[in-house]
């Protein structure tokens, strides 16, 4: 169970600098928070989209979800954390209770 706000936790999962597909990050975060609904899954995906919009994570690859790992027919994104994201994350985690 994570005590961090969702967006911070999502960046924390990616903090090692490796490239991650959105569905893998979302799956991990859902386990951390004990989320089960599709609504929670989509909320976490929206968090990732907002993190990409402020350039804390960057899209590196794309594919269509043919197998239904996230939502069949949807666009899947592969992300990597940016230097700006790492800086904000280290600042955030240093002080989080």
């Amino acid at each position: 169970m994570s005590n961090l706000p969702r967006k911070i936790r999502l960046m924390e999962i990616m903090q090692d600098g490796n490239e991650y597909w959105n569905y893998d990050v979302i799956k991990q975060a859902m386990q951390d928070y004990g989320f089960q609904s599709d609504f929670s899954r989509d909320t976490l995906n929206m968090d990732l989209i907002e993190l990409a919009a402020v350039a804390f994570i960057k899209e590196v690859d794309l594919k269509v979800d043919d197998e239904g790992v996230y939502k069949k027919g949807f666009l899947l994104h592969k992300y990597v954390i940016t230097e700006a994201g790492k800086a904000r994350l280290s600042d955030a985690c240093m002080y989080a209770i």
Binding site: S2, N3, L4, P5, R6, I8, Y33, F39, S40, R88, D91, A92, M94, Y95, A96, I97
Partner: peptide, 16 residues
Amino acid sequence: GNYGEMIRTAKSFHPC
């Protein structure tokens, strides 16, 4: 269903 997220965000005083 945001009450849990509210508590987590409120506790993260410095970043949030």
